[in-house]
């Protein structure tokens, strides 16, 4: 086993470790850290194997790719942290909700308009009366 493949194997280990933590932990910060561990694993595979050149210098192209990848990961992590803080502020905890739509309806259900002020905002003149008043469906 060459040093290059050793680095790559450590990278593979980090990937799997990160994937495990990502699936097991519920807290979003832990998920983010796990994602970054997986990301580091991928970068290590990418840059570790660059050492296999016959010449003394490592292949510069994977190094450039990893630099690009790191900046992308930084940007993504920054966005994710801010999004996590917003989720915590809005939902009360930094975790994903499994139940969809139970937190709040998309829009509050319309209360029957008293005197129909909302209905008067309608676009079409001469609309069917069923749409413009509360009494239309009265038995």
């Amino acid at each position: 086993m060459t040093p290059a493949s050793l680095y790559a194997l450590v990278g593979v280990g980090l990937i799997v470790l990160g994937l495990y933590a990502l699936s097991v932990h519920a807290h979003l910060l832990r998920k983010l850290l796990a994602f970054n561990v997986t990301g580091s694993g991928v970068f290590l595979v990418l840059v570790g194997l660059a050492r296999r050149t016959p010449a003394a210098a490592a292949d510069p192209v994977p190094q450039a790719m990893v630099l690009t990848g790191i900046v992308v990961a930084v940007a993504a992590t920054a966005l994710a942290v801010v999004l996590m803080l917003r989720v915590q502020a809005t939902c009360g905890r930094a975790a994903l909700n499994d139940d969809l739509g139970t937190l709040e309806p998309l829009q509050p259900p319309p209360t029957p308009p008293a005197g129909g002020p909302a209905a008067s905002a309608g676009s079409a003149e001469g609309a069917p009366p069923a749409l413009t008043g509360t009494t239309a469906h009265a038995p």
Binding site: I15, L22, L28, K31, F35, T38, G39, V42, V45, L46, L49, V61, P62, M65, G69, A76, L79, A80, L83, M84, R86, V87, T90, C91, L96, N97, L100, G101, L103, E104, L106
Partner: peptide, 29 residues
């Protein structure tokens, strides 16, 4: 809350998907 929650889940999934793709790129290169 729904949109933020949906976006957070989407972000994690999207980032993970990209990493899978990048790993493939590394191996192919």
């Amino acid at each position: 809350a729904d949109a933020l929650n949906g976006a957070m889940r989407y972000l994690l999934v999207s980032l993970l998907g990209s990493l899978g793709y990048l790993l493939g790129v590394a191996l192919l290169y």
